[in-house]
Amino acid sequence: MNSEVQEYIKKQRSPQKEIIEKLRNIILKTYPDIKEEFKMGVPWYEGKYYLVGLKDHVNMGFSIKGLSEEEKGLFDGTGKLMKHIKIFSPEEINKDRIVELLKVVRKE
């Protein structure tokens, strides 16, 4: 467990805190060996995913490198290397969909 990531989560307001905790748990359960680090002020996972608490929601970012146009369409944003999904409440987290998106990005 990365202490900087834990500190970041602790400082978040609700519901961002709960959303980030839930998403982080999904990432770590899906990929138990994934490297968690604290880069650019937010939690990162092997340069493939990031979590960031914003004013009224959380963005979960995904690397789109090597994805098809159809796969890129699963995400929001205009980034050339990363796109994201927005989550406004813990209740709207669909674990199966998140795992599916994680696997689209990290093909194994």
Rank of each mutant, 00 (worst) to 15 (best):
N2A: 03
N2K: 05
S3N: 11
E4L: 12
E7V: 03
E7D: 15
Y8R: 15
I9A: 08
I9T: 12
I9F: 10
K10P: 00
K11F: 06
Q12N: 07
R13F: 11
S14A: 14
P15G: 09
P15Q: 09
P15H: 11
E18L: 11
I19Q: 02
I19R: 05
I19G: 00
E21F: 03
K22C: 01
N25I: 05
K29C: 03
K29R: 14
K29H: 13
T30S: 08
P32Q: 12
D33K: 15
D33F: 03
I34K: 10
I34T: 08
K35I: 02
E37N: 14
F38N: 08
M40I: 10
M40S: 13
G41Y: 05
G41W: 13
V42I: 15
P43D: 09
W44V: 12
W44L: 02
G47R: 12
Y49M: 13
Y49Q: 06
Y49T: 07
Y50K: 08
Y50N: 05
Y50C: 04
V52K: 10
G53R: 04
D56H: 13
H57C: 05
V58G: 05
V58E: 04
V58D: 01
N59G: 11
M60A: 04
M60P: 01
F62D: 03
S63Q: 12
I64S: 13
I64T: 12
I64N: 08
K65Q: 15
G66R: 12
L67F: 08
E70A: 15
E71W: 11
E71T: 10
K72P: 00
F75H: 14
G77R: 10
G77F: 06
G79E: 06
K80G: 15
L81V: 09
L81Y: 12
K83T: 13
H84Q: 04
K86Q: 13
I87A: 00
F88Q: 01
S89C: 09
S89D: 09
P90K: 13
P90N: 07
E91V: 05
E91L: 05
E92S: 11
I93D: 00
I93A: 01
K95C: 00
D96R: 13
R97W: 10
R97Y: 07
R97A: 02
E100K: 14
L101G: 02
L102Y: 03
K103D: 02
K103W: 04
V105K: 01
V105N: 06
K107M: 03
